[in-house]
Design a protein around this nucleic acid. Structure first.
Length: 509
DNA sequence: ACCCCTTTGAAGTCA
DNA sequence: TGACTTCAAAGGGGT
């Protein structure tokens, strides 16, 4: 996979090391091969081909709902860029209109509703316009404020939020970074697309040149930028981009539409003063109160200040983008509510996607990472280490001392830590029997419960039992059990079963 | 209020 | 360099 920056060591495997093995049974392979037309092969090679194919020949995945291929997408993207540039003189006026309309219709249900942007849809080739800043598109280093507030409506102006009838894998929802800034860096998108996935440092027109990253430049960034206007500011208590910005500041709130950027810095803003979806303050509520009362925060220690620095979130990876888009669909079609269960379904769906479909998300993720890199040159994922509370050390200690840990289990039975799993439960994570307190409370044998060899495919019932732990194997005597319990859910786990026709329970593709 | 669960992928640390 | 860890999102559920 031609990930930017060389990618991490684990990026060459479509399955995570912790992946539940039940999801790699034969049924899945049988399902995949005829669809994608590719056998299991070197995964790194496979991933490498993902982007290449997506960027090269127009794939037009041929799947229902996948829409035009990448070539069409590129063409539309270039068209919209041209159109966008042509529109710059009219940008201000049109931007205001677009902004208004977009805030009403296009974004009100989107998780990224606060971002009025020019968006390219890799899946359906639609470019939707809105009131986005235009400076970056102008390709001038000082353009950050110049053309702001300019909205350029291109393409079909398709609604951004997913609709029931929308193509399944059309990447129809906005992505936090790419979509947020795409209008400011159309040239970047074009650059990416034209380079066949080869990352090349952006030249004189990189985004950092549009947004002065020096603190002194904050005040120079025009507050007329449409996407930086107060309704877009994440001033709600959580102050994250998960919030609908339109609800963050009430009409009667004591904030002018264009608040001084310095007031925004600690609430979801980049150091440039630009609000950004990846920036989440630690205590938005508190900061909001400060703003509310017009008070200066009490003197703080350096540590406190450090702790209150807004958190710049990691850019979303391909799967996370996919989850964001598909979660609502799964929730709507199933009666499931638990995110963990939904994520399991989404994980399976992800593996069931064709390479072309996955490529869309890999490409989006790549752009997000690149944009993130441009916006926060000094940022490192390490910055957020430890911010998800303790856990890590405790888990680490546990894994070293807990005999029920899969690591220990595998070591005890001389199993391969990467390819073997933990005995009866076949998990690479903690032994589920241990969790359930069975027997000694840990795996006692590397042999599966039905006596089959340790490296045999996991039994479907194990999967079902795991997915729906409330059901005992006795209750789940049929692979259709799950489906019966979830009559509207097309994501039947019966896919785990060899005896089940491929794709049974899945929506038509 | 906080953490866990669960998924995959990217990027970090460590030996 | 490989193995391992952490964190991205989500929200119900448990403590």
């Amino acid at each position: 996979m031609p990930q930017l920056g060389g990618g991490g060591g684990s990026g060459d495997d479509l399955g995570a090391t912790d992946e539940m093995l039940a999801f790699k049974d034969e049924g899945e392979q049988e399902e995949k091969i005829p669809q994608g037309g590719f056998p299991e092969r070197d995964l790194a090679d496979l991933k490498s081909s993902l982007v290449n194919e997506s960027e090269g020949a127009g794939s037009g995945s041929g799947q229902a709902g996948s829409g035009p291929g990448q070539t069409e997408v590129l063409r539309r993207a270039q068209n919209s860029q041209r159109l966008y540039q042509d529109k710059i003189p009219d940008a201000l006026e049109e931007g205001l209109k677009a902004q208004d309309s977009s805030s009403v219709g296009m974004y009100k249900e989107s998780v990224y509703s606060g971002y009025n942007l020019l968006v390219h849809y890799p899946g359906n080739g639609v470019s939707a316009g809105a009131g986005a800043g235009a400076g970056a598109g102008a390709g001038t280093g000082a353009g950050a404020g110049a053309g702001t507030g300019a909205g350029v409506v291109t393409g079909a102006g398709q609604s951004l939020h997913a609709k029931p009838g929308q193509p399944s894998h059309g990447v129809t929802q906005l992505t936090p970074l790419y979509e947020h800034f795409s209008s400011h860096q159309t040239h970047i998108s074009a650059d990416i697309n034209q380079k066949q996935g080869v990352h090349r440092p952006l030249q004189t027109t990189d985004i950092s040149s549009f947004y002065s990253l020096s603190p002194g430049g904050v005040g120079q960034i025009s507050h007329t930028m449409g996407w930086a206007s107060p309704p877009l500011y994440p001033l709600s208590p959580s102050c994250g981009y998960r919030q609908h910005f339109s609800t963050a500041v009430s009409p009667g709130a004591p904030y002018p539409r264009f608040t001084h950027p310095s007031l925004m810095l600690s609430s979801g803003m980049h150091t440039t003063g630009i609000p950004h979806p990846a920036i989440v303050p630690h205590s938005g509520k508190q900061e909001l109160q400060h703003y509310d009362r017009g008070l200066k925060p009490p003197s703080e220690t350096k540590q406190e200040k450090e702790a209150k620095k807004p958190t710049i979130k990691k850019p979303l990876n391909a799967f996370m983008l996919y989850m964001k888009e598909m979660r609502a669909k799964v929730i709507a079609e199933c009666t499931l509510k638990e995110s963990a269960a939904i994520n399991q379904i989404l994980g399976r769906r992800w593996h069931a996607l064709s390479r072309e479909e996955q490529a869309k998300y890999y490409e989006l993720a790549r752009k997000e990472r690149q944009l993130h890199m441009q916006l926060y040159p000094g940022w490192s994922a390490r910055d957020n280490y430890g911010k998800k509370k303790r856990r890590s050390r405790e888990k680490h200690q546990e894994s070293n001392t807990d005999p029920g840990s899969p690591k220990k289990c595998r070591a005890r039975f001389g199993l391969n830590q990467q390819t073997d799993w933990c005995g009866p439960c076949r998990r690479k994570k903690k032994c589920i029997r241990y969790l359930q307190g069975e027997g000694e409370g840990r795996c006692t044998s590397p042999v599966s419960s039905d006596g089959s060899a340790i490296d045999s495919p996991p039994s479907p019932l194990d999967s079902l039992q795991y997915i729906r732990p409330a059901f005992t194997p006795d209750q789940l005597t049929s692979p259709t059990d799950f489906t019966h319990r979830q009559p509207n859910c097309p994501f039947s786990l019966s896919l785990h079963l060899k005896s089940t026709p491929h794709g049974a329970g899945l929506p038509a593709r």
